[in-house]
């Protein structure tokens, strides 16, 4: 029972972590809370569904295709909605992300219909039994793919020229710009990458929860809480926050009551904001004047 919960929690946490990393990446590079993140996640799942179940492409190709489309969607979002507002107040940007979320949800409803669409599991074997414990194969797939994706991102972020420029931009836009980095391109890239992460997470969770236009709403909110728990100023804080949240939720619904599963995240959020506002990884912020 415990092991099962643990694996399920890690899987859910991985999903939160992927979406949350996108959040943090955008927050760090442009101090923006992107409320469309959950809907970018949903769009990824829709793209994957289209390639896999409608077009009939092989699984791996479908996922890659879904990621490419998510990347392009993120870039489009930046060009059309965020870039024109580069000098606008924070609140305008925030509301634009909210409106973009509504737009994506309803576009999805129009294109794919309002109903829940089934997404086949990646493997024909539904569960595997290890030492007497049966575990959902999709959970294992989720955890493994997440580790893979985060590792690739880590390599890119730490060691490539692009990654370094992206990091510099997320630390200090002005200085980065003075060093000859094209900051707007970096922000475009940050948003496109976040969208890709979201899309990947959407496709990973699709076989478990299926695909529907509002599937991103709750995940988006929770991923965002995961970012805060981990520390919005630390890119890997999202990872820790996501896993923590996934585990907490699974254990609460497993051992206490599933009725209050969705409340857990929000209670943690409010407590963290009061007592640990910079999150688990964050240092105490200095108010620079």
């Amino acid at each position: 029972m415990f092991i099962q919960q643990l694996i399920a929690g890690l899987a859910m946490g991985s999903i939160y972590a992927l979406v949350a990393m996108g959040f943090t990446l955008i927050f760090k590079s442009m101090k923006l809370v992107n409320f469309a993140q959950g809907d970018l996640f949903m769009m990824g799942a829709m793209f994957g569904y289209t390639f896999y179940s409608i077009v009939g492409l092989p699984l791996v190709l479908s996922i890659i295709g879904g990621m490419v489309l998510s990347f392009l969607l993120g870039a489009l979002f930046e060009r059309l909605a965020l870039n024109p507002l580069k000098n606008a107040p924070e609140m305008s940007l925030l509301l634009v992300t909210v409106a973009t979320g509504i737009l994506l949800q309803n576009l999805a409803k129009l294109i794919w219909g309002p109903d829940t669409l089934p997404f086949d599991t990646f493997s024909e074997v539904q569960t595997v039994t290890l030492g007497g414990v049966s575990i959902r194969t999709q959970d294992i797939v989720i955890v493994v793919v997440t580790i893979l994706a985060v590792s690739i991102f880590h390599y890119f972020f730490q060691y490539t020229q692009f990654g370094k420029a992206l990091r510099a931009t997320s630390m200090d836009r002005q200085t980065a710009s003075a060093m000859g980095i094209n900051v707007r391109v970096m922000i475009l890239l940050a948003i496109a990458i976040s969208s890709t992460f979201g899309g990947l997470a959407g496709m990973l969770i699709a076989p478990v929860y299926f695909v529907y236009p509002t599937m991103g709403v709750m995940i988006g909110l929770k991923a965002f809480i995961a970012s805060v728990i981990g520390g919005l100023n630390h890119i890997y804080g999202a990872l820790i926050g996501g896993l923590f949240l996934g585990l907490m939720e699974t254990f609460v619904s497993g051992y206490i009551s599933s009725a209050y599963k969705d409340i857990v995240a929000f209670v943690i959020l409010i407590v963290v904001l009061r007592f640990l506002p910079s999150g688990i990884l964050g240092k105490k912020a200095i108010n620079k004047v």
Partner: peptide
């Protein structure tokens, strides 16, 4: 009391939480 001692979009976050709770 729980959120407004901070500067930044924290009230937005907490109020989403309150809405959901």
């Amino acid at each position: 009391y729980f959120t407004l001692h901070l500067q930044g979009p924290y009230l937005a976050m907490a109020t989403i939480g309150i809405g959901e709770i």
